[in-house]
Lab assay of single mutants.
Amino acid sequence: MEQATVKWFNAEKGFGFIERENGDDVFVHFSAIQGDGFKSLDEGQAVTFDVEEGQRGPQAANVQKA
């Protein structure tokens, strides 16, 4: 698992990007966020996640709020 920071997340559209420590951004979809209830992330929030290869490149999976 990697630890990184949420760059931005649009709760209405259900997706955003996580900024990795190496500077690369990773796409995150609300369905990858672990937990119950409304799944959203806040800008600047610390998260841990795995990286999977998606249809359009790397994307976050198993996202957990740190």
Rank of each mutant, 00 (worst) to 15 (best):
60 A>M: 02
19 E>N: 10
18 I>H: 00
19 E>Y: 13
51 V>Q: 05
24 D>K: 14
28 V>N: 03
31 S>V: 05
6 V>I: 09
19 E>Q: 15
30 F>N: 06
29 H>K: 02
29 H>D: 04
6 V>C: 06
9 F>V: 04
2 E>W: 13
5 T>H: 13
62 N>K: 07
65 K>R: 11
62 N>P: 01
49 F>W: 00
64 Q>P: 03
44 G>N: 06
58 P>C: 08
27 F>D: 03
45 Q>L: 07
49 F>C: 07
60 A>Y: 00
51 V>P: 04
33 I>D: 04
62 N>E: 03
61 A>P: 01
44 G>C: 09
17 F>Y: 06
5 T>K: 14
36 D>W: 09
1 M>D: 08
22 N>Q: 10
15 F>I: 07
59 Q>S: 07
62 N>H: 10
19 E>C: 15
59 Q>W: 08
29 H>M: 04
28 V>L: 08
23 G>Q: 09
4 A>L: 02
60 A>Q: 01
27 F>I: 02
21 E>Y: 11
16 G>P: 00
55 Q>T: 13
38 F>C: 12
56 R>P: 07
43 E>K: 15
9 F>I: 03
23 G>F: 06
29 H>E: 04
14 G>S: 01
6 V>D: 04
62 N>L: 05
34 Q>A: 12
15 F>P: 01
1 M>Q: 14
49 F>E: 02
50 D>M: 14
3 Q>G: 08
47 V>C: 04
41 L>G: 02
22 N>A: 09
63 V>R: 00
23 G>I: 03
40 S>V: 11
55 Q>M: 13
13 K>C: 11
7 K>I: 05
60 A>D: 02
35 G>W: 09
3 Q>T: 14
40 S>K: 11
56 R>C: 13
51 V>E: 06
61 A>E: 05
29 H>P: 00
43 E>H: 15
20 R>S: 05
25 D>V: 13
54 G>M: 07
55 Q>K: 14
26 V>D: 00
40 S>C: 15
43 E>Y: 13
13 K>A: 09
52 E>V: 15
64 Q>E: 09
30 F>C: 10
11 A>S: 12
10 N>M: 02
19 E>D: 06
4 A>S: 09
53 E>V: 13
21 E>Q: 12
18 I>Y: 00
30 F>E: 05
52 E>P: 00
23 G>A: 09
23 G>L: 08
12 E>T: 12
57 G>L: 04
49 F>L: 07
7 K>N: 04
47 V>K: 03
17 F>W: 07
13 K>H: 09
29 H>V: 02
37 G>W: 06
29 H>N: 04
56 R>G: 10
18 I>E: 00
8 W>R: 00
8 W>D: 06
46 A>Q: 12
9 F>N: 04
9 F>C: 06
15 F>L: 04
14 G>H: 02
54 G>L: 06
15 F>E: 03
32 A>S: 09
62 N>M: 07
38 F>E: 07
40 S>M: 11
21 E>M: 12
6 V>F: 00
49 F>D: 02
60 A>T: 00
16 G>S: 00
26 V>A: 00
48 T>R: 11
43 E>M: 14
49 F>N: 02
30 F>H: 09
42 D>F: 15
17 F>N: 01
36 D>R: 10
33 I>H: 00
64 Q>I: 12
65 K>D: 08
39 K>R: 12
32 A>C: 07
5 T>M: 09
39 K>P: 07
57 G>E: 03
65 K>S: 09
51 V>Y: 09
44 G>Q: 04
42 D>T: 15
43 E>S: 15
26 V>N: 00
52 E>F: 13
51 V>S: 05
37 G>Y: 07
58 P>N: 06
18 I>Q: 02
36 D>F: 11
38 F>G: 06
51 V>G: 01
1 M>K: 15
63 V>C: 03
33 I>T: 02
24 D>R: 13
18 I>P: 02
30 F>I: 09
50 D>E: 14
29 H>T: 00
55 Q>V: 13
45 Q>F: 04
25 D>Y: 12
17 F>E: 01
14 G>F: 02
53 E>I: 15
9 F>P: 06
15 F>D: 01
15 F>S: 00
9 F>L: 04
36 D>M: 11
44 G>I: 01
52 E>Q: 11
60 A>G: 04
11 A>E: 09
23 G>M: 09
5 T>S: 08
59 Q>V: 10
54 G>P: 02
16 G>E: 01
1 M>S: 14
36 D>I: 12
43 E>W: 13
28 V>E: 03
39 K>E: 06
37 G>N: 06
6 V>T: 04
44 G>T: 02
14 G>M: 01
35 G>I: 09
46 A>S: 12
16 G>N: 00
46 A>D: 08
